[in-house]
């Protein structure tokens, strides 16, 4: 078993060995993944960070290339990234990484995402608590689930026991001399929120048109909070942030709840917020299942926690199937 003090020493050691460590940091009321300056910044007590590992793998905005109109030059922009250790992600966020991997490193490889993933090691701290929005067990994961982690630390008597999950984790452990632990983990916390996903895909297969879409999207105000904070949502926009002669082309998160998302000069195929909300549900619980065999939801509950108007995805799924 490793105590918190042991862990902080480990992190310091990794930083000393040239790893960039990204971990949950508390700043006023908000806990978010940040590049760690000092190990003491790590917050061990939160349920879940506000942001997700997308901030590492598919950031909210990034420069694709720089251009110069006069010279007609296009210069790809890439900062060779150091190896990054993501420390203290929760199992749901780690699981989400495997979903994005299937989408962005599957039939088509997103080169930027892939390079970041190659350089990223996920050291998860499993959950010793859950809040009322958590529903990972309903999505087939769990508070101690190792999916997507390279190494997982399971809560044990006030500290953590570390186990290797992947080959990448094994290599990392031997490289930094991380000793793995014997010892029993504490029991997993119970989740209050629980739904069964049985029949949801089948209902979606048959009900592209249904009056229920209007009902379940009533409260939605078409902002992007649930999308941007979702660990699996990955839609993006490409835009030039221009100077008169020089500028950059950026990739920027985008969102199917915005009306402009599908709007073309002469045609808008998706009119109305219930149709946009339908796209969100269909994308997660049908289209992604059809295309990669996985549901694009890990039950992290951020969309429930952060929706300003109480749209509750588990309630929606149950209402649809009902």
């Amino acid at each position: 078993m490793k105590t918190i003090e042991d862990i902080l020493r480990l992190i310091e050691d990794w930083q000393g060995k040239g790893y960039t460590v990204v971990a949950p940091v508390r700043s006023e009321g908000l806990v978010s993944f940040e590049v760690l300056r000092a190990p003491s910044q790590i917050d061990f007590d939160h349920v879940l960070t506000v942001n997700t590992l997308k901030d590492v793998t598919l950031p909210r905005c990034e420069t694709l290339f720089k251009y110069d109109v006069e010279k007609a030059s296009i210069e790809p922009s890439w900062e060779a990234s150091q190896p990054i250790v993501v420390f203290g992600s929760r199992p749901c966020d780690a699981a989400a990484v495997t979903i994005l991997d299937s989408i962005l490193m599957g039939e088509v490889t997103d080169s930027r995402y892939a390079r970041r993933r190659e350089n990223m090691i996920v050291v998860t701290l499993a959950c010793s608590q859950a809040d009322e929005a958590c529903f990972c067990t309903s999505m087939g994961y769990g508070p101690h689930d190792p999916t997507g982690s390279d190494i997982i630390g399971l809560p044990s008597k006030g500290g953590y026991v570390f186990r290797v999950v992947s080959q990448k984790g094994k290599d990392f452990a031997s490289k930094v001399g991380l000793e793995l632990d014997e010892g029993r983990a504490d029991p997993e916390p119970e989740l209050k929120r629980r739904i069964t996903t049985d029949g949801i895909k089948a209902w979606l297969d048959e009900n592209f048109e249904s009056p229920k879409w209007e009902k379940v999207s009533e409260n939605c105000v078409s902002c992007g909070a649930c999308y941007y904070l979702c660990p699996t949502c990955h839609c993006f926009d490409i835009a030039d942030e221009a100077g008169a002669s020089r500028g950059v082309r950026m990739r920027i998160w985008d969102c199917c709840s915005f009306a402009g998302f599908t709007k073309m000069a002469a045609h808008q195929p998706r009119v109305g917020k219930h149709r946009r909300y339908r796209q969100r549900i269909m994308h997660k619980f049908k289209y992604t299942v059809d295309n990669i065999g996985k549901t694009a939801c890990v039950g992290d509950g951020r969309c429930i926690r952060y929706c300003p108007y109480g749209v509750d995805i588990t309630e929606v799924l149950e209402a649809l199937r009902e």
């Binding site: 908000l30 909210r60 105000v221 902002c223 992007g224 941007y228 904070l229 300003p308």
Partner: peptide, 12 residues
């Protein structure tokens, strides 16, 4: 610098 431009403020 924390703003992610989700436009929840505008929509609300």
């Amino acid at each position: 610098s924390r703003c992610i431009k989700c436009y929840a403020c505008r929509q609300a």
